Every structure is written in C-alpha cells, then in structure tokens.
Amino acid sequence: MLQRAISPIRRRLDRAGIFLSAACAVHCVLSILLVSAFGIGGELFFAPDVHRIGLVAATLIAGVAIGWGAVRHRVAAPFVVAMTGLTFMGGALAVPHGIKEAVLTIIGVALVSLGHILNLRHVHSAACKDRCGD
C-alpha cells in the first residue's frame, strides 16, 4: 500500500528532472545565441550562481528519484547514467563560459534526463509485473 502512494511521487520527481534537464539545455543554447548575436544578457545568463543552483537542484532531484528507484528495483543503470551526467554538469562549472561549458552541460543534462527516463521505464515495468503476475 505504501509503495503505491510513493510511486506517483517518484514519477513526478522523474518528470521534474526531465523538465529541468530540458530547461537547462535550452538555457545553454539561448545564452550562447543571445550573447553572441546581440551582446545582451551575459551577466544574467552566464552568472555562476545560476549554474550552481541548477546543478544542486538536478543532483537533489536525481538523487531522490533515481536513487529511490535503484534501491527499490535493484537496477543500477538509471543511477549510473544520471550520475555520469551530473559529473559532466559539474565539469562544466570548471571550464570558462562558452562553447565548452555548453557542450559539457548539454551532454550532462541529456544523460541525467536519460537516467530519469530509464527510471520511469523501470517503475512502469515493475508495476506491470505486479499487476500481470510476471
């Protein structure tokens, strides 16, 4: 009974993680385009705190949702993929702003998003097995 109440929370966290990853990728691309094309918004879009806060949020959401799924279903792949993505995102904080940072961040958020997608698939397949008796 408790597990049925928890699954919607995990699903929401995974979906929030996917949304956050997509928003981060859009932010990276738009930042480079706007600053390069128009020379505006650099102080806002490239502010280090924006990236640090995004990494903390991504780490918390992934840690809870994907870590929870890994413990519950004993499947490491979503966790490993997401943590690899978070490592890329962390590495992006160590390079100067620009193309290198954007590439590392986009690789990172793609992997974190993939981790959430894999986690959602494992939740779905586990629920099906419970219902179908497999």
Rank of each mutant, 00 (worst) to 15 (best):
L2A: 12
L2T: 09
Q3G: 05
Q3V: 10
Q3Y: 12
A5W: 11
S7V: 15
S7T: 14
S7L: 11
P8R: 10
P8F: 09
R10H: 14
R11V: 14
R12Q: 10
R12S: 08
R12M: 11
L13S: 01
R15Q: 09
A16V: 08
G17E: 05
I18F: 01
I18P: 04
I18M: 13
F19H: 00
L20D: 03
L20A: 15
A22I: 14
A22H: 00
C24L: 13
V26G: 07
V26K: 06
H27G: 05
C28A: 12
C28T: 00
V29S: 10
V29Q: 07
L30V: 14
S31I: 06
S31W: 13
S31R: 08
I32H: 03
V35P: 01
V35C: 01
S36Q: 12
S36H: 11
S36F: 09
A37S: 11
F38R: 11
G39N: 10
G39T: 15
I40D: 05
I40F: 11
I40A: 09
I40N: 05
G41R: 06
G41Q: 08
G41E: 03
G41F: 11
G42R: 10
E43C: 00
L44I: 12
L44N: 07
F45N: 02
F45C: 00
F46D: 12
A47Q: 07
A47T: 00
D49Y: 13
H51S: 09
R52V: 15
I53E: 01
L55V: 12
V56N: 08
V56Y: 14
A57H: 01
L60G: 15
G63F: 03
G63Q: 01
V64Y: 05
V64K: 01
I66K: 02
G67V: 06
G67W: 03
W68C: 09
G69L: 00
G69A: 00
V71R: 15
R72K: 12
R72C: 06
R72G: 02
H73I: 05
H73R: 11
R74H: 11
V75H: 07
V75L: 06
V75G: 04
A77H: 03
F79G: 04
V80H: 03
V80Y: 02
A82G: 09
M83W: 13
M83D: 04
L86H: 04
T87M: 09
F88N: 01
G90D: 09
G90E: 08
G90P: 07
A92D: 03
L93E: 15
V95K: 00
H97F: 15
H97V: 15
H97Y: 13
G98H: 05
I99P: 03
I99C: 04
I99F: 13
E101R: 12
A102M: 14
L104Q: 06
T105F: 09
I107K: 07
G108M: 02
G108C: 02
G108Q: 01
V109W: 07
V109G: 05
L111T: 03
V112G: 00
L114F: 10
G115I: 07
H116V: 04
H116Y: 11
H116K: 06
I117T: 13
I117K: 09
I117L: 15
I117R: 14
I117G: 08
L118W: 01
L120G: 12
R121C: 02
H122M: 07
H122D: 12
H124T: 13
S125I: 12
A127C: 04
A127R: 14
K129N: 12
K129Y: 02
D130E: 15
D130L: 09
D130Q: 14
C132P: 00
D134I: 04
D134F: 10
